[in-house]
Design a binder for these strands. Structure first.
Length: 475
DNA sequence: TCTGGGGTCCTTATACGA
DNA sequence: TCTGTCGTATAAGGACCC
C-alpha cells in the first residue's frame, strides 16, 4: 500500500486529502511512522524524529496511528490476495508476497499482468486506497519492482533483464543492506550491485560474514530461490515503552518493569503461547541499549513467573543516570495448551483477566481521565452534527471536524469535553458498504464503476520465467 | 529537538556434556 | 583419568525491516 497509514487517514478524513499528513508518536520522543507524499516533498520520512518533521512542515496534520483501523483495511486487502493464491506471505500490515503460479492464476507474463491489473483495481474499489504491485520471478525482484512501482503503479521485471537492471543501482536497493552494511561495502570500494557481483563470493563472505556474504552475493547475481511461505510461526513476543522523560527512581523502574511483564504475558496468552526465555531490555539516558535474559526449565505463561524473572534481570543492570526505555519479552515459544497440564493456572488467569478489564477496557478507547477520551484523530459521533473526528482537545474543550469518507470536507465545531451529546465512535468504512462487491446497490453503481475503471489497461508480452513466481503487493 | 515499537536473523563468546 | 574436540545451548549485541 502506498504511504499506507497516511493514505488511510486521508481517505477517512476528506479535509486532509492533498495535504501533508504525518502519522506517528506525538510525544516529545515520537518518530514518524508514515508521511503522506505531500509531506515527503518537504523531506519528511519514516523513522524521522517527530520534532524534526514539525520543523520541516509546521502546518501538516499530525496524527497518532490507529492500528485497529489499519488492520481492518489490511485484512480486506489480504483477502483479495488470498483469492489469487493460497500462498500469501504477509510482511507487515501493508505488504505481502503472493505466489501466483501456486495459485494457478498466472503462468506467463500476460496472465500475471492481467491478475495484477485486476488486483489493483479491486484494492481501489474495495478500500478506496491505492496499492502498487511488483511482478517478477523471485521475492527479491518482486520487492524491488514494487518499490519502483510506488506510488500507484505496476512494474514487471522480465526474466533475462534482471542483471542489467540491478547492475548500476546502489547496493542499498538490495533488501538487507542498511546503513551499516552500506558503509561497510562503501569502505571496500563497492557502491553498486554490479560491483558486488564483481567482488566475488569469497570477498563478500570475508567482508560481511558467512550468512550475509553468501546471501548478498546471490542477490547481486539475481539468484533468489526462497519460496513464498504462507504460515510463519511467531518466535517471540515483546512489549516496550519509551518514556517522555528519563526515569531515575529505581523503585519506579521496578514498577514499570512489572507493568511491562503483565502486558507481555497478556499478549502471550492472547496468542495462546508460552515461552522459556525472558528478556529484559533497557535503553539508558545516553541511548546505549542492553539486554539481559534468563532461560527457565520449561515454558511459562504465568504472570508471577515472568514478573520475578524480569525483576531478577533488572537487579543485574545499572540504571544510574536514568533510563529512557524499558522492555520485557518472551522467546523460546511453545503452544501453551501443553502448559495447562502443569498449571496452577485457573485462579491466576481469572485474576489477570480481571485486571485486563480494569486496565485496558478496549484497545482504542481508554476510559478515564475525561480529557484523554478525546484522542486526536479518532472518530466521534455527535447527536446533532453526526460523524466526525477529533481535531484537538485541551483546556476542557474538544474540537471536532464533522465529515465522513464520502462527504465533502467538513466544518469544525468546539464542545465542552463533558458534552453528553458527544461520544467515541468506530471508524466508518472507506468505501460505502456493498460498493466493493459485485451486485451493487443501484444508487452507488456509477460511482463504484468510475473508481474501478481508472486503472489503465496493459499490453502483455510473453512470459518465459520458470520456477516459483513471486509478486509483492504494496498498496 | 535528537533517535518508536514490534519483530527476525546473524555473530560472537562462553558453558557444558558426550 | 586426563585432555582435546565437537556439537548444542545460552547469553549479549547488532543490523535490518516495516
Amino acid at each position: 500500500m502506498d504511504a499506507f497509514f497516511a493514505s488511510a487517514e486521508q481517505a477517512s478524513k476528506p479535509s486532509l486529502r492533498g495535504k501533508a499528513v504525518v502519522v506517528g508518536g506525538l510525544g516529545p520522543r515520537g518518530v514518524v511512522a508514515t508521511a503522506s507524499y505531500e509531506a515527503r516533498v518537504f523531506g519528511v520520512h519514516s523513522a524521522m524524529p517527530m520534532a524534526q518533521a514539525r520543523r520541516l512542515v509546521p502546518n501538516a496534520a499530525y496524527l497518532v496511528p490507529r492500528f485497529g483501523f489499519y488492520r481492518s483495511i489490511s485484512e480486506q486487502v489480504m483477502g483479495l490476495l488470498r483469492a489469487l493464491s493460497p500462498l500469501v506471505e504477509p510482511l507487515s500490515l501493508d505488504e505481502a508476497f503472493v505466489d501466483l503460479e501456486a495459485g494457478g492464476t498466472a503462468w506467463d507474463e500476460e496472465s500475471a499482468r492481467l491478475a495484477a491489473v485486476k488486483l489493483r483495481a479491486d484494492i481501489r474499489a474495495g478500500t478506496g486506497l491505492t496499492g502498487s504491485v511488483g511482478l517478477a520471478a523471485s521475492k527479491m525482484l518482486a520487492k524491488i519492482a514494487s518499490e519502483q512501482a510506488k506510488p500507484d503503479g505496476l512494474v514487471v521485471i522480465e526474466p533475462g533483464t534482471e542483471r542489467a537492471l540491478l547492475g548500476p543501482k546502489s547496493v542499498r536497493i538490495l533488501p538487507g543492506v542498511g546503513p551499516a552494511t552500506g558503509d561497510h561495502l562503501r569502505r571496500a570500494g563497492i557502491h553498486t550491485v554490479e560491483e558486488i557481483a564483481e567482488a566475488g563470493e569469497d570477498e563478500l563472505v570475508r567482508l560481511l560474514g558467512k550468512a550475509h556474504g553468501h546471501g548478498l552475493y546471490a542477490m547481486a547475481m539475481a539468484y533468489d530461490e526462497r519460496p513464498v511461505v504462507a504460515e510463519r510461526e511467531t518466535k517471540s513476543v515483546s512489549v516496550e515503552d519509551t518514556y517522555d522523560v528519563d526515569i531515575h527512581d529505581r523503585v519506579r523502574v521496578g514498577l514499570e518493569v512489572q507493568r511491562l511483564a503483565d502486558r507481555c504475558v497478556r499478549r502471550l496468552r492472547g496468542a495462546g503461547l508460552s515461552g522459556r526465555t525472558i528478556v529484559l531490555k533497557v535503553r539508558r539516558y545516553d541511548f546505549s541499549t542492553l539486554t539481559r535474559s534468563e532461560t527457565l526449565r520449561g515454558p511459562t505463561d504465568d504472570v508471577a513467573v515472568v514478573r520475578e524473572a524480569a525483576a531478577r534481570l533488572l537487579d543485574s543492570v545499572d540504571t544510574t543516570g536514568g533510563v529512557r526505555l524499558l522492555g520485557v519479552g518472551v522467546s523460546g515459544l511453545a503452544d501453551y495448551t501443553q502448559e495447562d497440564l502443569f498449571a496452577q493456572a485457573a485462579g491466576e488467569r481469572a485474576e489477570l483477566a480481571e485486571e485486563e478489564q480494569r486496565v485496558e477496557p478496549a484497545e482504542d478507547a481508554p476510559v478515564v481521565p475525561v480529557e484523554r477520551r478525546w484522542v486526536s484523530g479518532h472518530d466521534v459521533r455527535h447527536d446533532e452534527f453526526g460523524h466526525g473526528w477529533v481535531q484537538g482537545s485541551g483546556l476542557g474543550r474538544v474540537t471536532v471536524r464533522f465529515e465522513t469518507p464520502d462527504s465533502e470536507p467538513g466544518r469544525v465545531r468546539t464542545f465542552s469535553v463533558e458534552d453528553p451529546a458527544l461520544a467515541v465512535a468506530e471508524p466508518l468504512p472507506l468505501v460505502p458498504v456493498g460498493c466493493e462487491a459485485a451486485g451493487l446497490r443501484p444508487d452507488l453503481e456509477s460511482h463504484c464503476q468510475a473508481s474501478a475503471s481508472s486503472v489503465p489497461a496493459s499490453l502483455p508480452k510473453s512470459w518465459s520465467g520458470k520456477g516459483g513466481g513471486g509478486a509483492t503487493s504494496r498498496p
